[in-house]
Design a protein around this nucleic acid. Structure first.
Lengths: 212, 212
DNA sequence: AAGCCCATCTTGACACCGTTCAGATAAGTG
DNA sequence: CACTTATCTGAACGGTGTCAAGATGGGCTT
């Protein structure tokens, strides 16, 4: 099956890689219309295909969303990896990870929502999320160890510290857009300062303030 | 209009207080079937009324959910108020607030979801949420001041500290149910210990560990 | 090269959803 | 009592997830 398509006349009956096209269409819709605009039919429409076509690649709508979520966690991992300078001080590294996390959530809000909706609803997703985020999670772990939050032999406590950081970042990522903080943000002279201020109160992100 | 109904023959044509009944039906559905089972028609069915009836009390489905969210924030506030011992030490008070917050979210997961979905989507909700939660939020503020996190004259910093605590609690509340933490919970001998452990790493909740 | 197989895609249908609108009902008002 | 008005019903519209049956054509066997 050779790769067909790129705008050469009418799309061939067999698409080539519809699965990929559907996932792209879905994230495009999410970024454009938000979570409310994400319907299987809309995705099929956006990909230029009949409403039943997706069922040959995903058993369910929830399975499509799961695939989106997996890719989202991969991208998040990549983004954090890219923006984390391994030669920086441990504290700055942790702060940078937290900021990168929130920035990602802010730049793809709907995708981020889908990621955590799936993590909550699906039994399979949490493990996948953990796997996919393993890159980012281990970066965090390393930085936490270097920071002296917990020694490597206190594995349980270290894990707890990382989970705490993760929870804090997630909470902040979800709430940073709340309108009721607008006044405070303005008073502080921008969202960046607000973000740094909040992070500075969250134990492990204490160094964030110096980056404002 | 006398109060009718309680199982005396067929329900009278005019319900009496359908708005109340719809909200009750909605929360019942949320607790029973989760967020996915919440449709306007299902709510109407549960209340024993035609699909179009709710439109005389809510202009929209989103307005119904908004009302549910408002009641949720009220209940959350009440719960935190009830479980906060004002004569306890400030640190213990903060820790108790955090635990109560997470416990509420765990006991009404679907309602909690609706609460924050509305806070994100609606322009009106965030203010309402803040107002409704003012009781709980001011409890937190007081405890934070007593704890010495920030002096009352550093109003901005105090606000930031409270927001940080709120974010952390929200993140934990959303993630505490993740399956991927099950192993760690078991290893620690229960979810309570896990919760206390995570909270102990989140700055302002440092005292939580002593309550495990 | 011919022919078959089967993954892929389409068409059409079903039940359910949010929403609207015309009409039925009954509660309150004069 | 008559009349107004809020409340509720019934039927209808377009959109959704999902499924079964049929059309299509790429790749394998021969």
């Amino acid at each position: 099956m050779k790769a067909p398509c790129p705008f050469t006349g009418p799309r061939p009956y067999h698409h080539g890689d519809l699965r990929r096209a559907l996932l792209d269409a879905a994230t495009r819709i999410l970024d454009r219309d938000g979570q409310g605009g994400l319907s299987l039919r809309a995705v099929a429409r956006e990909a230029g295909v009949s409403p039943a076509a997706p069922y040959h690649h995903f058993k369910d709508k929830s399975e499509l969303m799961l695939a989106i979520a997996e890719e989202g966690f991969d991208q998040l991992s990549d983004y954090i990896r890219r923006t984390t300078n391994m030669s920086a001080l441990p504290m700055e590294r942790v702060a940078a990870i937290g900021l990168a996390y929130v920035e990602f959530a802010k730049s793809h809000p709907a995708v981020y929502r889908v990621m955590y909706d799936c993590s909550r609803d699906s039994d399979a997703m949490p493990d996948k999320a953990h796997d996919a985020e393993d890159g980012a999670f281990s970066l965090l772990k390393r930085a936490m160890i270097d920071m002296g939050v917990a020694s490597p032999d206190q594995e349980t406590d270290l894990e707890l510290a990382c989970i705490a950081a993760w929870c804090a970042a997630h909470g902040l990522a979800e709430m940073v857009g709340f309108k009721q903080f607008d006044a405070l943000k303005a008073e502080m002279g921008g969202e960046k300062a607000f973000l740094a201020g909040v992070l500075s109160h969250l134990g492990m992100f204490g160094q964030a303030r110096s980056r404002a």
